[in-house]
Amino acid sequence: MYKTDNAKQVKMQRMLLYVFFTILTLLSILPFWIVIVNATRSAPEIQQGLSLIPSGNAWNNWSHLRSRGFNIFQGYGNSLFIAATSTTLSLYFSSLTAYALIVYEFKGKKFLWGIILMLIMIPTQVSIIGFYRFMANLGLLNNYIPLILPAVASAPTVFFMKQYLETIYHPALVDSARIDGASEIRIFHTIILPLMRPALATMAIFGFIMSWNNFLLPLILINERSMYTLPMLVQLLTTDGYRTEFGAMYMGITLSIVPLILVYTFLSRYIIGGVTAGGVKQ
């Protein structure tokens, strides 16, 4: 009797968890669905109120985008180049820095780690004026270098990589490789980086999304329309003084979030795979 009641209680708790997580999933998907639905509606329909049912104005919204000079393929190319390059540089050099902080002992190590923690706490907006003047003095306005190169020294990524590496690093792995004659850089590439795959996938998602959605810094540094990123092109749709085509705006937003969904879908399996592998004892 007791076992039967206990089984029913466990089953009820499991059902409540399923219901709870289903509600959370729907709440997470709902904003994206609203954006997609609004991309198929006209401006008057959007102004009438919220709807969860797609309309038939998607082609008109796309045509309006094209008539306003919205070069989606150029925007995709510019944003993809910046996001992919900055994310790759950030992951590699941040992992290298985290590896050095974990493996090696050197003077000023604690001081350097304190500086990294301090940089995390400083908002980017505080230094944006000085950064603009510095780039202007270097002649790097209307250039992608200021949007890519600073990713090499990403304090939040270094912090995350170091915290993750502390949980998986074992000195015996590196010592055995050194005994076999492997160089330090080879040890990092062949042993450490594969172990950090879940952390790399996690920060790749965050880094790519942040770079892809970055609007303020490109707006300040870039003036040539041919170099505009996708968020900057979407912003141009709001400059009409007589009428705002909300449907076209939502169409542009929908097109801009498609690569983010693809990147998350591709990289999330490495996070899940890494967690699963870490939970199996050899």
Rank of each mutant, 00 (worst) to 15 (best):
I222H: 05
T229H: 03
T88Y: 08
A204T: 05
Y164P: 00
F160T: 03
L96Y: 14
P146A: 04
L165P: 02
N78R: 06
L30D: 02
Y264G: 14
I129Q: 08
V258L: 14
M1F: 08
K107I: 13
L216S: 06
T87W: 07
E245D: 14
A248P: 02
A39I: 03
S211H: 10
S79T: 15
Q125L: 07
I261G: 06
I192P: 00
T190Y: 06
S183L: 03
I271G: 02
L50T: 07
D175W: 13
N137G: 04
N71Q: 12
I115D: 02
F81Y: 12
K107C: 06
P218G: 11
A155M: 10
N57P: 01
L30M: 10
L195K: 00
A84H: 06
V174C: 02
A43L: 03
S90M: 15
R133K: 14
S127K: 06
F20S: 11
S176C: 09
M227C: 14
Q47R: 07
I122M: 10
Y242G: 07
I53T: 12
I209N: 09
L112E: 02
F160K: 01
L173A: 02
S256W: 00
R225S: 15
L255T: 08
I128Q: 12
S94D: 08
Y250R: 04
R243C: 06
K110F: 09
T254K: 03
V10K: 13
Y242R: 10
K162R: 14
V126K: 04
L147T: 04
P146F: 05
A277W: 01
I36S: 07
A199H: 03
S211I: 02
L255A: 13
T254A: 15
I148R: 02
T244N: 01
M227K: 15
L65D: 00
A98I: 05
S28M: 07
A84T: 15
T229N: 05
P150C: 09
F106G: 11
G139V: 13
L195T: 00
T229R: 05
M161P: 00
I187S: 01
P31I: 08
N61W: 07
Y99K: 05
W59A: 10
L117R: 07
T276E: 12
I220K: 08
Q235H: 11
T88K: 03
W62P: 01
F106Q: 10
W212C: 11
I145V: 11
S79G: 09
G77Q: 13
I102Q: 07
Y169S: 00
L149C: 05
W212E: 09
R243E: 08
K281T: 11
L193N: 09
Q9R: 13
N38D: 04
I191W: 04
Y228F: 15
